[in-house]
Nucleic acid binder design. Sequence first.
DNA 1: GGTAACTGGTTGCTTTTGAAACCAACTGTC
DNA 2: GACAGTTGGTTTCAAAAGCAACCAGTTACC
Lengths: 157, 157
Amino acid sequence: MRNALSLTRFLPYRCNTLARKISVSLSRIYTERFGISVAEWRVLVTLAEYGELQAKQVGELTSMDKVQVSRAVAGLLDRELLLRRPCERDSRAALLCLSAAGVRLYQRIEPEVLAWEQSLLAPLAPAERETLFALIDKLELQLAGMADRATAGQGPV
Amino acid sequence: MRNALSLTRFLPYRCNTLARKISVSLSRIYTERFGISVAEWRVLVTLAEYGELQAKQVGELTSMDKVQVSRAVAGLLDRELLLRRPCERDSRAALLCLSAAGVRLYQRIEPEVLAWEQSLLAPLAPAERETLFALIDKLELQLAGMADRATAGQGPV
DNA sequence: GGTAACTGGTTGCTTTTGAAACCAACTGTC
DNA sequence: GACAGTTGGTTTCAAAAGCAACCAGTTACC
């Protein structure tokens, strides 16, 4: 049967398998050896970068939905890798940050993850790395635009 | 806390979210409107391209593992979009191909998917598209090498 | 100040995924 | 031709993702 579509040149497929392979390879570092899930890892990185945040902000920064964030935070609190204190401006929310143990754990994992990333990016010249991130930016932007157009004109919200 | 790692410049994260957004956007076409899952879609595309294949070959061509293939094929057979006949050389295996209904369905979906892909790739010049696929190729190659090295030297197999 | 709509966050439930056990059939070796 | 090891494919079971309901607290409006 004649068809124009071949998976090897189909971006959704290529992007999906690449992401999966990357994730499997990377998660060996923090999942198998430190018992940290992908969601928990993202929360750790974000709090390490920003200091103190509400769960909602973590979700926005990581593109995780609130259920994922809630469960990841619960797991990290169980292991006392996070601290939670009430937010005085809004008593529904809480402020999260890494505990001392969380910082120590993060500092053990981070260099290994960075080394792994260097090894993955090794075959790419610096300019190619820039290009790669620029292309990803463009595609995400375009997707956002496509979503907007798809939901527009569907009657009043 | 000072750290070198920021999610916005971390390839695993960027690749993961991009793949997820692409998948959500695309699957609106075949999931919501035709009731085809991602795995089933890949089987359809592969059989449309290659004609008649064993489940194992479908798995190799699509990077799906055999459980995924098995379930996708079962779903498609239920809806009579596939034909299965015994393989005379190996009676464990079966040969799969699209049924007439499967071809018709595929021919309805394919143009919509191609149009969607064009719309996604619209902001990329032809040369940029080539670059993107080349970069993905390089990264997958590197990952394969990293996996080899990781499993090498772990004692006799 | 009371009530309706909304929001941050959690919980419960259903659907999806993935790993490993499993079955039947095939291959090689003796 | 019997036995050990392998392979194509399915099933089973447990972890994970996604959805909707929910609770408590907040905002907006009359």
